[in-house]
Structures are given as C-alpha cells and as structure tokens.
Design a protein around this nucleic acid. Structure first.
Length: 748
DNA sequence: TGCGGGTCCAGCGGG
DNA sequence: TGGACCCGCA
C-alpha cells in the first residue's frame, strides 16, 4: 500500500482537516480520485474519515459541495454527517446531496421519475401500508393465507425487487412452492401500487435503477451532477443500491466506499456481502485503506473480539489494535437460566454503579431476540435500576399517528385506497367489511379510481346506516379539500380531529388515551412546523418527510440516565463503557434458523462481534444451562463462538452465587464467586419489601426525579414487581421506571 | 357489527 | 408463554 498522497498546497489549504488523524486516516482522507475502499474496523473513526474526506475534497477544490453525493443507510448517520460537515465546511453543505439511499431515490424520482413511468405525485407506502396491499393481492391471487404468510410472500417480492427482478423475470425464475405463489401475487401487487400512485421502499431504489438504465437523459444528468460519490456502510448495500452506484459513478470512477465486512449483519434485508468483498474486482485500480487503529475498546476486548471474528472465512483480513490500556479481562459467565442470568447482570450493574464506576446510562445489555428482554426487564425493575428498552413500535407506526396520516394522505391523494380503507370506519361509521367489499367493487367499476366514488357515494350502492356513513365521510373529505387550499396544515389537522370525531375516540379519559393523545400532539407539532402555507401545498412534502423519517431518536436524549436494553442488530453503530451480551448459546447465537448454511452462521458470528466491539471498558458474555423458550424450559449449551475465548489469556469467568457449576468442558475459566456479589445479587432479585398495593401516582401528575428533574406522569400501572410509571420529563424525554421512594417525589 | 374464545405461531427490523 | 388473527355467536 502506498503512503499518503499529500500535496504541499493541499496542506496549506486545509491543515486543520488532517490534524489529529492517524496515518491511515490521513491516507484515506487525502487519497486521490481513484475508487477508494476504506475498510473501517469497529471504532476506527469511520465517520470522521468520511466527513473529513468530503471536506478535504471541497477545501482542495477537487469538488464543489453541489457535486458531491454522500449516501448512508440511516437517517441518524446522515444527520451525524451533516452535523459534522457543517462544522468542517465554511459554506456548509449547501447543494450537497447527503442522505439515505431511499431519500436520494425519492428525490431523483420526484425530479425525473417520469422517465421511468413514475408519477410525480407518488406517495410512499411504509411497511404497514404495504402489508395491507399485499394481503389484498394475495386474496386476489387465491393464495392460501393459512399456508403462506404475508411475511414470506412479501419477503420474496421484496427480495425480487432488491435483485432488480420485475414480475415477469421473477415468475420465470421462480422455483419452489413459496416462490411460485409469490409470483402470482407480485404482478397484482404492482398493479395495486400503480392504481394508488404509490411506491414501496424497495421501489425507491428499483425505479431509480430503471430510470438510469432506461434513460440517457436521466443518467447523463446525474452523472454530470455528481463528480464524487461516497457511500457509508457499504457492506450493507443490496443489489439495487450497488447498481445505482455503478451507474452513477460511470467512467469517472470517483467513488469512495466505507465499510466493514465483519459488521455485515443484514443479509436478510437484502445486503450482499459480495459488494464489498469484490470491490477490487469491480474497480481493479482501487485503493484499499484499512483503518485498524481502534479508539474505543481496551486491548483485552479487542483481542477477544478478534479471536471470535477470525474464525470467519468470508472477510477481508484486518486486525484491530489500540494504544489504549489492556483493561479488565473479558468475562464469560454461565448461569442456570435466564432469570439467574438477568439477576447476575443486575447485580453486576449495581456493583459498578455503587462503586461510582459507571452511571446507568453507560451500560448496555444486548441480546439476540426481543423475547429475551423480558427476564432482564423484570429484574431491573425489581432492583430499581432505571432502564430503557430500545425498539418497540416506532412513532410513525403507532395506530393514532398512522390513522391521522391516512386522513391527510387521502386529502393529498384521493386515489389512495389503503389510506381510505384504514380510516373509513375509524371512528365507527357503520361501514364494515361487507360494505367495504361493495365499495371496492364500485371503485373497480370506476377503473380503480376511488376519487370518483368519493365524489358520488351513491355509486357504491350502500343502503341504510353504511350508506349514510360513507356519505358523511365523503362530505367531510370534500370540505377538508376545500379548506386545504386555504388553511395551514395544522389548522386543517385541528379541524379534522374534531369533525371526524377522532379526538374523542383517542382521548377517552383513560391514561392510555392520554398517551395516545400525546402522540397526536407530537404529530400536530410537526404539522405546525410546516408553516402557514395552504395545506394542500405543504402536505406532500410533509408526508414525504414523515415517510422517509425513521424513529425520532430515543437514544440521544436519554443515554445518560438509564441502562439500555437493545438487540444486537440495533446496537450496531453505538458504543457503551460497559456491555453485557446475554444468551450466547447454541440456538440463540447462532440462532437456530441460521444453522443450515455457512454464510448464515458466519453472519451470526459477526453479530456477536458487533456486540463485543460496542464495549469500551468492560465486556461480559453470558450463557445459560437452561432457557425458557415459548414458555417451556429447554436445555442450552454455550455458543460455539465462545470456543476461541477459552484459550485466550485475559478472559475470566463471571458467575452467579455458587448454586450452579458448569461442566468443565463448557467454560473458559473457573467461575469467580464472591460474597459481596452474592449479597448484591440477593438484593437485586428480592421483591421490594414494601410494595404498595395501589398505585401512588396517576397520569397527569407532576413529579420530580432525583436525576432527570421534573416531568409529568403519563402512565402508571401495577405490575407484580410493584408500580411502574412512564414519565415525560421536561428536559430528558420519556422514560419508564419502577417507583421507588428514593428517586421520585410528587410536586405541588 | 362487535366481542370472546380457540388456534397458531414464534429472529433480527432501516427506509 | 403471549400476541395476532379468525370464526362463530349476541
């Protein structure tokens, strides 16, 4: 590998951009305009290199911001890059395209989608909408819903789209029963999307490929525009994304990809590891710069993680190292079952916290499947350890938010049948399944145009209550449309909430109702940000932003105050001083569904690797002798992935109070048992002594928390472990706690 | 149309 | 074990 390519003039132009970078980072940042593959190991300063390279390209006048396309997978990554670049570039990121693949796709299709037959006013269907449509298409195709789930059929279609296969090509290549069923559904699903003027997320990539391949105009336009293309998380790209990049990069080949094959854990979402493994085949003149210096973890942690990942065959060799301290040994512990495992985790967290070593927020507990979180939650709750469960239903997927958005979508696009069917009977208007079928027929008779039927509800031929209900709904939508041309979006929404009866439905006086109402208000706040312009004009952009937006960050705001419970997949990209990886067992990690292929198995190993490399100072791995699966206990054995650790120096045992001793062959080192830990464990698992039989708090009450300050109770409920409350803090977001006298007091 | 009980299923989840 | 969904009944 050649050394850094630095011109003296470059250094003069932008000395600060290289300050504090290590030699490999400098080499990546300053590399010439050749295809560049940055093999960025975990914790090696990947984002820093990417942003500094962009800034460097601009500072040395090799690119203007508007000539740069930088794509990421997540909104979060895009936001982070944007933030950093704004600090690095004098004139900011003006004109630069910096965003997710899907946002890029949507933007291109809005501009020139007509060249691929995409209507300009398309709407984007999310997972829920997509499933509704799939279900319908499956019925129409006569696919037995009992034998084939929406998930499996939808998965096939999604995979086909990611592989750039249209319905015809897919049908021709279909093998096996599921595929042949999916082949019957696919064309129908496509027709339905078209009739609704909708694209699903896969389309945002597929249609771009079609556009660029089918139109010289489009291809020329974007090739000319983007002289430099940079890609984050390249190991996660699928076939469609790969093809888009190939097309855009064209002959200039000024492409920088950053990624780490060892952290590829999304093959089930279409990611193709070959894209990164074969980058040098695609671009023989490519420069490859490995970033191997790690700034995150102790040497002990890196050594263990390295020993694990080294067993994989599908990788590009890379060895992480650090100038940092050796640190505490990585601990591998065996426990009797998931309850004891959870108790040991809690006890260790308590110990570290008491010793003043860590705050709650500096600890993360990782697991393979969401179901594993329950045992952990129970114990943390009982031990009074504040925690935050990452995952669950995302804001934009919550029912009340989806319902209101459906109303708004129908306003923006009167042909959106999925939106219509979602809300026609919410609140109840007497239009049930029977009536809906009739309406569907009527729509079909009108050439699939829902709008015609809404303008003339008689067409549906409904009688009685259901006919009246449809008419009322149609009338309301007509009024809404009228107001939409004059009123601001937030005003339209307020009117809608009253007129539709939705507010009354949501806000039924129960604590849950208040929580739902809180979500509505959050959405209302977003609508208010759209300004005073007529709703019909601001609405399309609003809907697009929401469709492409991910979760409102749960992690940023509160990472200081609570232990994080999170899946191994979701933890990618994060770091914590103390990390527990639980359930490192055969059948769980590797998951039983991954045992039949080497590549799937290796992906599971990467998953463990990702988990281990999140740890900064302390890392604990645990497995059980027995674990409850679907309610019944099953024997468990340590994961095969742990084997290389037992031979490693600097790995030690971590155990529960002497009740259980592992068979010698299944553990690394002798379990470490201490009295102090026994006591802590007992404390962590003991039911709170003075549980009040009734809730102390009620929704709406203002309280003060020792750590998070003031807030308002959202939900209070009694659980076997005591009272549990959800609090919206004034300054620290939403949190869930077990009530303990020590931390919470009522105000006023 | 709305509900209650039986049945079936169960991995990870961005945009 | 528990949630989602379907079918049958008020």
């Amino acid at each position: 590998m050649s050394g850094p390519h630095i011109e003296v003039s470059d250094l003069v132009a932008s000395p600060s951009l290289l300050e504090g970078l290590n030699p490999a980072q400098v080499e990546a940042v300053t590399a010439p305009d050749v295809p560049l593959l940055v093999l960025a190991g975990a914790g090696s300063g990947k984002t820093r290199v990417l942003t500094h390279r962009i800034a460097y390209l601009v500072a040395t006048a090799r690119a203007r911001p508007s000539g740069i396309l930088a794509v990421t997978f997540t909104n979060k990554a895009a936001r982070e890059m944007r933030g950093r670049l704004e600090g690095l570039l004098e004139d900011g990121v003006q004109g630069m395209w910096l965003g997710t693949f899907h946002a890029m796709g949507a933007r291109m299709l809005r501009q020139r989608g007509d060249l691929a037959g995409v209507p300009r006013d398309f709407v984007i269907y999310d997972e829920v909408d997509r499933q509704a449509l799939l279900k319908e298409a499956m019925r129409e195709a006569g696919v037995d819903e009992k034998r084939f789930s929406i998930g499996s059929i939808g998965g096939e279609i999604s995979r086909a789209k990611n592989d750039l296969q249209g319905p015809g090509a897919f049908a021709a290549a279909a093998r096996g029963f599921t595929e042949s069923q999916a082949a019957k559904v696919y064309p129908r699903y496509e027709r339905m999307l078209e009739a609704n003027r909708a694209l699903d997320f896969d389309d945002l990539l597929l249609k771009v490929v079609r556009m660029l391949e089918g139109s010289e105009v489009a291809l020329g336009r974007y090739r000319e525009r983007f002289g430099h293309v940079l890609v984050d998380e390249y190991q996660d790209t699928n076939r469609a994304q790969y093809q888009i990049l190939r097309l855009l990069v064209g002959e200039h080949r000024k492409v920088t990809v950053v990624g780490d094959p060892d952290q590829s854990v999304y093959s089930w979402r279409g990611a193709d590891l070959r894209n990164i493994l074969e980058f040098q085949r695609d671009y023989p003149e490519a420069l490859v710069v490995p970033l191997e210096q790690n700034y995150r973890s102790t040497a002990a942690i890196l050594r263990s993680a390295g020993a694990v990942i080294q067993e994989n065959s599908l990788r590009l060799e890379k060895q992480l190292w650090t100038l940092g301290p050796e640190g505490d040994p990585v601990q591998v512990g065996q426990f009797y079952d998931e309850r004891e495992e959870a108790a040991a985790v809690a006890a260790e967290i308590l110990r570290l916290h008491r010793g003043g070593e860590v705050g709650w927020g500096e600890v993360a507990v990782l697991y393979r499947t969401n179901a594993q979180s329950r045992a952990l939650e129970e114990v943390l709750l009982r031990g009074g350890i504040p925690y935050r469960l990452v995952g669950g239903v995302r804001f934009y997927q919550r029912k009340e938010v989806k319902d209101l958005l459906a109303y708004l979508r129908l306003l923006a696009n009167p042909r959106d049948r999925v939106a219509f069917e979602r809300v026609i009977n919410v609140p109840k208007r007497g239009v049930g399944a029977q009536s809906l079928a009739q309406i569907r027929d009527a729509v079909q008779a009108q050439g699939g145009d829902l709008d015609t039927v809404l303008r003339d509800p008689q067409l549906a031929g409904l009688r009685g209550a259901s006919g009246a209900g449809l008419s009322r709904f149609a009338e309301m939508m007509a009024e809404l449309r009228e107001f939409g041309s004059g009123w601001a979006l937030v005003e339209v929404l307020d009117w809608l909430l009253e007129r539709s009866g939705y507010r009354a439905l949501v806000r039924d006086g129960s604590p849950e109702g208040e929580e739902r109402w809180g979500n509505v208000l959050e959405l209302r706040g977003l609508a208010a940000e759209q300004g005073e312009g007529p709703a019909l004009q601001t609405l399309p952009l609003f809907l697009e932003q929401l469709a492409l937006a991910g979760e409102v960050d749960q992690l940023e705001d509160g990472s200081r105050g609570a232990v994080t419970l999170i899946t191994l997949h979701q933890v990618k990209g994060l770091e914590f001083p103390v990390v527990f990886v639980t359930g490192v067992e055969e059948g769980l990690l590797p998951h039983s569904r991954s045992l039949d292929s080497v590549s799937a198995l290796e992906e599971e190993r990467r998953l463990l690797y990702v988990g281990m490399t999140r740890a900064q100072r302390r890392l604990y791995l645990s497995h059980c002798f027995q674990r409850h699966l679907y309610g019944s206990p099953r024997g468990a054995t340590p994961s095969r992935f742990l084997k290389p650790l037992s031979a490693l120096e600097g790995t030690s045992g971590w155990g529960a109070p002497g009740s259980f001793v592992a068979p010698a062959s299944t553990r690394g080192q002798p379990l470490v048992l201490t009295r102090a830990r026994d006591a802590l464990l007992a404390e962590a698992t003991r039911p709170s002594p003075s549980e009040p039989a009734v809730a102390r708090f009620t929704a709406g009450e203002r309280v003060e928390h020792a750590r998070f300050g003031r807030g308002v109770i959202r939900v209070s409920e009694m659980t076997p472990g005591g009272e549990e409350v959800v609090i919206d803090f004034d300054g620290a977001g939403r949190r869930r706690f077990a009530v303990t006298d020590a931390v919470l007091r009522k105000l006023g």
